[in-house]
Amino acid sequence: MVLSISGINKSYKKVKNEAVKALDNVSLEIDQGELVAVNGPSGCGKTTLLLIAGGLLYPDQGEVLLDNTNLYDISANERDKKRAEKIGFVFQQFYLVPYINILENILIPSIGSNSYSSSLEKRARSLIGQFNLSHRIHHKPGELSTGERQRVALARALINEPKILFADEPTGNLDDDNAGIVLNYISDFAKEGGAVLLVTHDGRIGKHAHRTYKMKDGSFLSNTLNV
């Protein structure tokens, strides 16, 4: 099992100390080669689930096992290291670094994981070719289309050959053609043995997923097996 989430509760304190429940006893398991989608409306707790699963947000209750290591039982530094080595993130907003070119953007996680090498650079160039970005290798993010930017963000997420990819509305800013391209790349990653947790409010994505969870008000309503 690559990722095992069990019994996760998370509440946010809002004004007048009134707690808002974001996740309510959520459990989930993802194995190698699996693409799991969590589908639901905005504010249902999808992003919170993804941040907790990615080791970025402490849950109030429950545990997150990544490769059999509980992410919240280890130090912050070790968690950062795990994230750099084993997790890839893709967000709706891309969050590319605007002042470096796409090759450098793709290689930037190697600073966090201290893993820069010529073979890693080869892999970056290979991903650039694979994602049809060769003609943009020295361009900066501002010079790319939105679809190209998301492909760069995806290549960056995959550079360290993560065990699992977390994708938060990865097609939210893309047209149908580009959304299809990006989803195909994500599917390919899963087919090659990677695990994917994809959260979205777009119901059309379900067809790419092995399993789809419907989420509302912090809980899973249903679980659909697509295979």
């Binding site: 670094v97 002042y99 470096i100 190697s110 600073i111 820069y116 290979s126 060769s134």
Partner: peptide, 21 residues
């Protein structure tokens, strides 16, 4: 596909500082 004939980037903190400046 692997790209060729490109100058290797120096990926480190210093590179980020320089580029941002």
């Amino acid at each position: 596909m692997t790209l060729k004939n490109d100058q290797s980037p120096k990926i480190n903190i210093w590179m980020i500082i320089k580029r941002e400046l």
